[in-house]
Design a protein around this nucleic acid. Structure first.
Lengths: 143, 143
DNA sequence: ATTGCTGCAAAACGTTTGCAATTGG
DNA sequence: CCAATTGCAAACGTTTTGCAGCAAT
């Protein structure tokens, strides 16, 4: 997997640095859809000198290489996902966690939109909002 | 319509001010999904002393009263919509305009998600991205 | 009269940029 | 060795906050 990133970077004329590999690895290793700051914090123990600016600059490149997608779940900050397939996301309104929704067939829905709009469509993002299982448990325990 | 806002505000113990009515009217009168700054600029001629902070504070209240919904189309700023029905939006990747998509039946799609996730769902947002008719025309004219 | 609101300025926040020192090819 | 990248600090744009004066009830 890191080999893949390495060659993709080199192919496009980007240099392969430990920081870039670490940032991609951190993203690829989690399903928590971290923000730039979360990635920065995750890497702090291993890369104590790395700056937040490097995280942002690297994410910019990873976007260009289609290695990450950007999520806009309605927070102040962006979140990033190394799974670049087109899947919906769901965010917990209580704890803020963001989960993937896989195995959903949106082709009919997308087809309707595609047939009706005059836009030339290039992509889409589907966000759901609710309360995650863990927070449902907490809520009923508290009451 | 303003009568409705007036009573809704009063019912919840909020004061009815010209600024609040103007901000809601501006939102209700457009389909362009303006950001706070766009609303501020729209109202500048009529309310030259109004501050951006008042726009933000008022939007906060309108959200509470379910008179506006917040859109996160992947820009730096949020956009607002006085049409609080659950409809998808489409954003032009060239000019940035945001349009409504009405008459789309998402019940099947939402049903799938609802059946599969353990989340207790409370809402959703569907965003499409593409090139609007006007920008398609410009692109072909330029080539 | 009282409470809450406005408008200003300053602060906060996430993100971007400029630049000298450093590192990868 | 050269060009690109890092890390820092400062800048930026959006949103929030504190507060004195003011307006709505």
């Amino acid at each position: 997997m890191d080999i893949c990133v390495t060659s993709l970077l080199r192919d496009k004329g980007f240099k392969v640095t430990p920081q870039r590999l670490a940032i991609y690895s951190a993203l690829a290793a989690t399903r928590s859809h971290p923000s730039a700051e979360m990635i920065y914090n995750d890497l702090q123990p291993l890369y104590p000198t790395m700056s937040l600016a490097t995280v942002y600059k690297t994410i910019e490149i990873l976007k260009e290489l289609n290695l990450v997608q950007v999520l806009n779940v309605g927070e102040d900050s962006f979140r990033y996902d190394a799974d670049t397939t087109n899947h919906p996301h769901v965010r917990c309104l209580t704890c803020g966690r963001v989960d993937d929704l896989h195995g959903i067939d949106s082709s009919d829905f997308v087809g309707q939109v595609s047939a009706q709009t005059q836009y030339m469509l290039q992509g889409q993002q589907f966000y759901f909002y609710g309360v995650c299982p863990a927070c449902q448990g907490k809520a009923s325990a508290a009451s």
